[in-house]
Amino acid sequence: MSAQAPVAVVTGGATGLGREIARRLHAGGHRVAIADISAEAATELAAELAAQGPDARAYTVDVGERTAVEKLYAAVVADLGSVEVLVNNAARTQARPLLEITPDELDQVMRVNLNGTFYACQVFGTAMAETGYGRIVNIASLAGQNGGTATGGHYASSKGAVLSATKVFARELAARGVTVNAVSPGPQDSPMVRELLGDGLDGLVAGIPVGRLGSMRFIADMVALLASPDAASVTGACWDANGGLHLR
C-alpha cells in the first residue's frame, strides 16, 4: 500500500473494541497508529497488522494527560506524516454501586473517558482544522444515554459527557472540513462485558429486545463509515447500536 494512504489513530486500540476498529480501518486501507497504555499489546497488534499490508505503528500513551496526547500527535506525524482519522476509544470501566463510588474512582474514570476524549479532540481537531480535513469518531455508550449503571455510574456519566463533547466539537470544526461523530454501543459480545456481568449475562441478554449481544465487528464497520471521506455530511451525530434497548 502507498505511503500516502490515510492515517488513523485509535486510542485504546490494542484490545477489545479498539482492536476490532484498528483491524477494520487497516483492512480498509488506512495506515494505523495503535495508541494504548499497554505497550506490549499495542506492539503485538501493530506487528500483526503491518505484516498484512499498510503500515501500523504502536504508541504508548495515557490519554488522561494532555501533554501525552500532544506527544502522541507529534510522534504519529513524525512517523507517518499526517493524521486524517481519530477514533477516541480509550476508556476505563469499573462496576461499583453508585452510592459507593469514591472521589478518586470518579476522577480516574472521568480522567480517561472524558478528559482523554476532550484533549484528543482539541489536539487532533486543531491540526485537522489547519489542513482542512479530518474525521473524529468518539466511542460513547448506551449507558451515557439511558443512565445504566451496570458498568458504573461514573462510567455512564463520563459517556454522557462524551456525547455532549461530540456535539460541541462538531459545531466548532464543521466549517473547517472536520466532522466529529459518536457511536453508541449497547452491550457487546466482548470479554469485558462477560467479565463485568458474570452470572448476570443471561439475564441481560434476555432483556435485550433483539435477544442477543452486539457485534464488535459491526461497531467497527460503523466507525469505518463515519471515518470515510464520503461521510462529509454527517457531523454531531450519534449512531446507536443497542439491540432496541434505547429507542429515539
Rank of each mutant, 00 (worst) to 15 (best):
A3W: 12
A5V: 01
P6I: 07
A8G: 12
V10R: 12
G12N: 11
T15H: 04
G16I: 05
G18M: 09
E20P: 00
I21V: 15
A22D: 11
R23D: 04
R24K: 14
R24A: 14
H26R: 08
G29A: 04
H30L: 10
H30C: 14
R31E: 12
R31N: 05
V32K: 04
A33L: 13
I34Q: 10
A35I: 10
A39N: 10
E40R: 12
A41I: 01
A42Q: 12
E44R: 14
A46E: 08
L49D: 01
A50H: 08
A51E: 09
Q52M: 01
G53E: 05
P54Q: 09
P54D: 12
A56S: 12
A58F: 09
A58T: 03
V61A: 10
V61G: 00
D62C: 12
G64E: 08
A68C: 06
K71L: 12
K71C: 10
K71E: 14
L72A: 04
A75H: 02
V83E: 03
E84C: 00
L86K: 05
A91T: 08
R92M: 09
T93K: 08
Q94L: 14
P97N: 07
P103Y: 10
D104A: 12
D107L: 10
R111G: 02
V112N: 06
N113V: 14
N115A: 15
N115V: 03
N115M: 15
N115H: 15
A120Q: 06
A120K: 06
C121L: 07
V123G: 05
G125W: 06
A127V: 10
A129D: 12
G132F: 08
G132L: 08
Y133L: 02
I136P: 13
V137N: 07
L142P: 07
G144P: 13
Q145K: 15
G148K: 09
G148I: 05
T149I: 15
A150Q: 06
A150G: 03
T151N: 00
G152C: 11
G152Q: 09
G152T: 10
G153Y: 11
G153A: 14
Y155K: 10
Y155C: 01
S157T: 15
G160T: 03
A161E: 03
V162G: 00
V162R: 08
V162D: 01
S164E: 13
S164K: 13
A165N: 05
T166I: 11
K167I: 11
V168H: 08
R171L: 15
E172T: 13
E172I: 06
A175Y: 05
T179S: 15
T179D: 03
V180Q: 11
A182G: 04
V183R: 08
V183E: 02
V183A: 01
P187F: 15
D189H: 08
M192P: 00
L196C: 02
L197H: 04
G198V: 00
L201S: 02
G203T: 05
L204R: 07
L204H: 04
I208E: 04
P209K: 02
G211D: 02
G211C: 01
L213H: 03
L213G: 03
S215H: 09
M216I: 02
F218T: 12
I219S: 04
A220H: 05
D221E: 13
A224N: 04
L225M: 15
L226G: 07
L226F: 13
S228T: 01
S233W: 13
T235A: 07
G236C: 12
A237W: 00
A241G: 02
N242E: 11
G243I: 07
G243F: 04
H246Y: 15
H246G: 00
L247Q: 06
R248H: 14
